[in-house]
């Protein structure tokens, strides 16, 4: 590896929800049941989910009528 190493801080096994736009993120945060499992907002389109609550969040998104794409490593 002849290129310089890039300094980075790694956050492993994080659960995130990324939305198409900020309005959709707001819509999700307005859902009380979902908001309980959201611990923060990384950007206006990226929500940080409480550890261990990914299944509950996916289920709640589906019950809201969304069909989230679940991006998991193979």
């Amino acid at each position: 590896m002849d290129k310089a190493r890039i300094p980075v801080k790694l956050h492993r096994r994080v659960c995130l929800v990324q939305t198409e736009d900020a309005v959709l993120a707001e819509e999700l945060l307005a859902r009380k049941k979902l908001a309980q499992d959201i611990v923060g907002r990384l950007t206006d389109r990226v929500l940080l989910v409480r550890p261990g609550r990914s299944d509950a969040v996916i289920q709640e998104l589906q019950s809201m009528g969304h069909t989230p794409s679940v991006v998991a490593s193979p």
């Binding site: 890039i6 300094p7 980075v8 801080k9 790694l10 956050h11 492993r12 096994r13 994080v14 659960c15 995130l16 929800v17 990324q18 939305t19 198409e20 959709l24 999700l28 990384l42 990914s54 299944d55 969040v57 996916i58 998104l61 969304h66 069909t67 989230p68 794409s69 679940v70 991006v71 998991a72 490593s73």
Partner: peptide, 26 residues
């Protein structure tokens, strides 16, 4: 399209770069 509106990373690895240039380099 509806499915592409929301992506959930249940166990993602998040990279926090010191600068935007570092991310661009990666």
């Amino acid at each position: 399209n509806k499915r592409e509106r929301i992506a959930v990373y249940p166990s993602g690895t998040l990279f926090e770069f010191a600068t935007p240039e570092d991310l661009n380099e990666a």
